[in-house]
């Protein structure tokens, strides 16, 4: 292959948003050749008790692109060391190791997407499906002085859910944030959205 030594991948970094963690690196270029990569990880246990042990990543041992979704490998809130090497046929590069171990408690939590709709007097909310680790705290209130704020905990996104039965003529407002048990953190609140329904009062 005309390549004596395969260079090790460089510029390893992890991007983590809403508990989805992606390891990226600069691709190793060898003209007209397809380079494969292998990713391995070590949790704090492995680095403390058996530092020679590295565990192959679930999805990227091997992989072709210069990135790897390591979400399924990061299963505890401890620092994880990560390393990558390139392979071309029988040639393998040295391992490159992430400079600073990654801990999932550093993930960026964004306010969740939400869709507010009305069905008659019913206020309906549909939340972004962020996966099983997320719970949603929905705050809703009637827009008038001294109005009481109600809170509803929604366990899963992706399904339109009835929030409350509105009174005609008054605006009803909603905002939502997420909570992740595994790291004990919540996101900022979303923008507030308000809706109003016209018509006669509903006999209860």
């Amino acid at each position: 292959d005309g390549v004596a030594v395969l260079p090790a991948p460089q510029n390893l970094s992890v991007q983590s948003t809403n508990m989805k963690h992606v390891l990226t690196w600069s691709p190793v270029i060898v003209p007209e050749e397809i380079i494969h990569y292998s990713v391995e990880y070590q949790g704090e246990y492995e680095s403390l008790y058996m530092s020679h042990i590295w565990i192959p990543s679930s999805w990227c041992s091997p992989t072709q692109g210069p990135e790897c979704d390591i979400t399924d490998d990061i299963t505890a809130t401890v620092p994880y060391s990560l390393r990558v090497r390139a392979t071309l046929g029988s040639l393998t590069s040295a391992w490159s190791t992430l400079k600073h171990p990654f801990n999932r408690n550093s993930t960026i939590l964004t306010p969740p997407g939400m869709e507010i709709t009305k069905d008659g007097f019913h206020l309906v909310i549909k939340l972004e499906d962020l996966g099983p680790q997320f719970e949603f705290f929905v705050a809703y209130w009637k827009r008038e002085p001294g109005a009481k704020e109600h809170v509803k905990m929604v366990r899963r996104g992706g399904i339109p859910v009835h929030l409350e039965t509105m009174e005609p003529g008054a605006a009803h407002c909603v905002k939502v944030r997420t909570f992740v048990k595994a790291i004990g953190r919540h996101s900022a609140f979303s923008q507030t959205e308000c809706v109003k329904v016209q018509g006669e009062a509903l006999p209860l």
């Binding site: 949790g43 704090e44 403390l48 299963t75 505890a76």
Partner: peptide, 13 residues
Amino acid sequence: LKSFSTLANNFIV
């Protein structure tokens, strides 16, 4: 190994 590592690292936490 993967499940073993999950348990061990959570015990560390």
